[in-house]
Design a binder for these strands. Structure first.
Lengths: 150, 150
DNA sequence: CGCGCATAGTTGAACTCTCAACTATGGAGC
DNA sequence: GCTCCATAGTTGAGAGTTCAACTATGCGCG
């Protein structure tokens, strides 16, 4: 029988972990609620529009878009289907790969994004950046990179 | 007409925000997937069991539990209903407030939690604490507090 | 007591996400 | 050209979350 000692969290780690959980949950819930209320879409959908708006010709391959959004392909498929219903994105066959689809931001989608952006950015400030010093922002950036790429 | 200048994010903030989004998403997704796979429940449900296990007599009022878990009452109601089906929690009328319900961790629920805990803690280490210095953990704690209580 | 508002908790519908299964096309190697 | 596997994307079912509406009980106050 294989016995491996669990490396339990010490008190510092435990407290940090719970604070982190609580903070990210509260932050994301607040932003989601605000975006849902003001723009009629969840944060994940907003991010899709943002990425498309930054892409050449406002279009991206589904897979690229999924990677950019840290989303599974399935999730993106469903999301784009929903955004298509709303008229904010449309799909288009990829000219160079017959398997591929391009997600394209519509005029309407761009308008909605431009309208939602100020309120959302203000929310990110209120809930996050206004509460941190410049050094803390820099450290949060380093910590995030460590978590992601470490 | 009211015009308010949007305080856009500067490049530092923008980069920090995207890194933070990506990191928390990746972290939570990984932990959720692991818990789902190893314990058959999402992280939110695991947390409910943890909180109950720490409460006197392994029981808590629904509202207290919701607050402890940073959850809406509705969400907790649904979650406890699900956990009840699994036999890991049961409900009990509150003796001092006829509106109230107590969520009680069952023996079985406790067993499942004890079994899942080591793997989960290991995951939290692997994905988070192993990648940060002690100072970073302390700073993350302060940052989290600032976000939550600021 | 009885009115009125607050609190506790639940419920159903609509929505989003996950997972696994599936179709279809691309590309390497013989 | 075929075979085989990888990649692109979709789909449907099941599970979790949100939101608003709802029931029921507690509590302050005249």
């Amino acid at each position: 029988m294989m016995v491996v000692m669990t490396r339990w969290l010490d008190d510092q780690e435990q407290a940090a972990w719970r604070a982190f959980l609580g903070a990210t949950r509260a932050l994301m819930d607040a932003l989601d609620r605000e975006l849902q209320h003001e723009a009629g879409m969840p944060h994940a959908y907003y991010e899709i529009l943002v990425r498309l708006s930054e892409a050449p010709e406002h279009m991206m391959r589904m897979s690229e878009l999924a990677d950019a959004c840290g989303s599974s392909r399935s999730r993106l498929s469903h999301a784009v289907a929903r955004l298509e219903e709303s008229g904010w994105v449309r799909r288009q066959d990829c000219p160079t790969d017959r398997r591929g689809q391009l997600a394209v931001l519509t005029e309407e989608g761009y308008r909605v994004l431009v309208e939602a952006a100020p309120g959302h950015v203000e929310g990110v400030r209120r809930h996050l950046f206004d509460r941190l010093t410049k050094d803390q922002v820099a450290e949060l950036h380093r910590i995030s990179d460590a978590i992601l790429k470490g």
